[in-house]
Simulated assay, not measured.
Amino acid sequence: MKSAVILLTLYFAGAYSQQSCDHPPKDWCSSWEIAKACKVEQQCIDYYSHKDLKKSNEPPVQVEVYYESYCGGCRKFVLLQLFPTWLMLNDIMNVTLVPYGNAQEKNVSGKWEFTCQHGPDECYVNTVEACVMHHLKNIESYFLVISCIEFSSNLTSALEPCLAAYEPELAVKTVMDCVNGDLGNKLMHQNAMKTDALNPPHEYVPWVVINGKHTDSLQERATSALFNLICEYYSGPKPEACSEKEVTPLKRNNVCLA
């Protein structure tokens, strides 16, 4: 099956596709836009998870992404690199998302207060995403919701429609109780500590760590051709998708400096 680097440009513009499915079944998983139009998003994830992959004891490639929800460069990285790569290669990679980025925290009377680079709305959405991850736990569930939020035109109001579309069993109230309560505060403090513990310290976001390492070279490769990098780093039997070499470059200046 011909694979493509999946461009979620309609999401990034905040427009959700309303078109009917006028594509033949063989093309349903060729792009995320088509998968969404044909309402087979989860089936496509399952397809790429199991297609022609030999069982291996080799560990998956570990990918950690430190980001902030309102950073344009972060959103483009998820749009053009991380999500489509994960969609096709999720059996050979583990993704950890850490929403915090260039924020700052201080302890005020026993509670953490956060100041975010792009203002209070960013702090709010960072916490929403942390709470969604906490409650859904499994990336196969929460990555769809996080991606939906990140590619919305109005991030602060995206939670309800994104949960309705992808995880309707998780109540908006459950997430908001986390966001507004001690749990959300704790989760964001944990993300702050993870981010502050980076070695070397992050200088911008998105900040990508591959198998526990960050170098300028790895960052450059991850943000220009993550798909190829994951295929190269995985030491087990390669999935068929790795024979494809289509990538979408992300310019290095699409970052948010610390």
Rank of each mutant, 00 (worst) to 15 (best):
F143I: 06
T127N: 08
D216C: 05
H50W: 14
V175G: 08
P201W: 03
S109E: 15
S17K: 12
Y11F: 02
T127M: 09
W112Y: 15
K2E: 14
W28A: 13
N254L: 07
H134M: 10
L159P: 06
S224R: 09
K238R: 10
D91T: 14
C123T: 05
I34P: 06
F143K: 05
Y234W: 03
C116E: 04
S20G: 12
C21K: 07
A258M: 05
D52P: 12
Y48Q: 03
E240H: 14
V145I: 06
N253C: 10
L82M: 10
V65Q: 02
E58C: 07
W86N: 02
N254S: 10
A35C: 10
Y166E: 06
N253H: 15
L229T: 00
V78M: 00
L136E: 10
R252Q: 15
S17T: 13
W28T: 09
V78I: 02
K251Y: 02
Y204R: 01
V205M: 01
L163K: 02
Y67N: 01
Q62S: 04
L183N: 01
E122C: 08
C74T: 00
N138H: 11
E129G: 09
L89G: 03
A13S: 13
G212L: 06
N211L: 00
P206C: 04
E160I: 06
A4Y: 12
D22W: 08
L136C: 12
V78A: 01
G184C: 02
E220H: 11
W112E: 13
S235P: 04
C44G: 07
H134L: 10
C123M: 00
A4F: 09
A192H: 05
Y233A: 11
E167P: 08
K186N: 01
D91E: 15
K106H: 15
C178L: 05
G73I: 01
D46H: 03
Y100F: 06
P237W: 12
M1Q: 14
V108F: 09
C162S: 04
L198K: 00
A13V: 13
E113F: 03
D52Q: 07
E105K: 11
S3A: 09
E246Y: 11
Y124P: 05
E68M: 02
P206Q: 04
C44Y: 00
K245G: 12
N254W: 10
S56V: 05
L7Q: 15
K2I: 12
L10W: 13
K186D: 03
Y204K: 01
S217T: 13
Q219C: 06
F151P: 08
Q18L: 15
Q42V: 13
E203F: 06
V61W: 03
S141T: 12
A258Y: 10
A15Q: 14
L97A: 12
V175K: 04
G181S: 14
D52K: 14
R221W: 09
N154K: 08
D196A: 15
Q104S: 08
C231K: 01
P59S: 01
P161A: 03
K26D: 11
L8P: 07
T248G: 09
G73R: 07
A222Y: 05
H214R: 02
S147G: 08
H118K: 10
Y233Q: 08
Y204D: 05
C116R: 07
L87V: 06
E240Q: 13
Y124W: 09
N90S: 11
D46C: 08
E220F: 13
A103V: 00
